[in-house]
């Protein structure tokens, strides 16, 4: 399973790199779709169908909105004059990547190997989840019973996002009721 995941993640990295460098914005979007749908197959292979359903639907809606944005504006990337000092750019990126890899290698040492994590809290959930919540789907039982605050926070995040979009995208001010 790890080899399949590695191949999928390699494809996703290639897609993301192509999306960064594509001249045509529509093909950049399609390459970005590789990332999203590859993530769906990763979730299915890791046995998380709940997440896979959410990811595939949200990815499709996002792709539709982004394609509409690209078709209504220009398909060419707007050229900007970048800083031409290439040596400085490369040195800065290498230093930052090396720093991140060092921190990452330092941080993953106390972790267990992949698929062999410790089960102190999860053991109770998997054994007693169906009895104490009454839900046959353990994920929903955890989301709405043990971790109710989590779900409330997620719903609040969506609410805030909608509120922000509606507030920002108002082109005309509201008419005053007095006049």
């Amino acid at each position: 399973m790890e080899t399949l995941l590695s191949i999928l993640i390699g494809f996703m990295i290639i897609g993301a790199l192509y999306a960064l460098h594509a001249k045509d914005l529509l093909s950049a979007l399609i390459a970005q779709g590789i990332v999203g749908y590859g993530l769906v197959i990763c979730f299915l292979n890791l046995r998380a169908p709940d997440l896979a359903i959410v990811q595939i639907v949200v990815e499709t809606i996002t792709l539709v909105v982004m394609v509409a944005v690209v078709l209504n504006s220009s398909r060419k990337e707007v050229k900007e004059s970048w800083n031409r000092n290439k040596i400085l750019n490369i040195v800065t990126s290498v230093i930052i990547v090396g720093f991140l890899v060092y921190i990452f290698a330092f941080m993953i040492q106390p972790l267990q190997p992949f698929g062999d994590h410790s089960m102190r809290m999860a053991q109770y959930y998997t054994q007693m989840g169906a009895e104490s919540t009454g839900a046959a789907n353990l994920v929903t039982g955890v989301l709405f019973d043990f971790r109710g605050y989590d779900t409330l926070g997620e719903a609040t995040i969506l609410f805030t996002a909608a509120l922000g979009v509606v507030t920002i995208l108002r082109s005309k001010p509201k008419k005053e009721s007095a006049s």
């Binding site: 169908p49 709940d50 359903i53 959410v54 639907v57 949200v58 499709t60 809606i61 539709v64 009454g134 839900a135 046959a136 789907n137 994920v139 929903t140 039982g141 989301l143 709405f144 779900t151 997620e154």
Partner: peptide, 24 residues
Amino acid sequence: IITHGHLTPGGGFAGGAIVAGGFI
């Protein structure tokens, strides 16, 4: 997906996104 959220994979988030996709 919404009403069988406690029995089969899915739930409020997934089903709500699918319904919104139908309207869109």
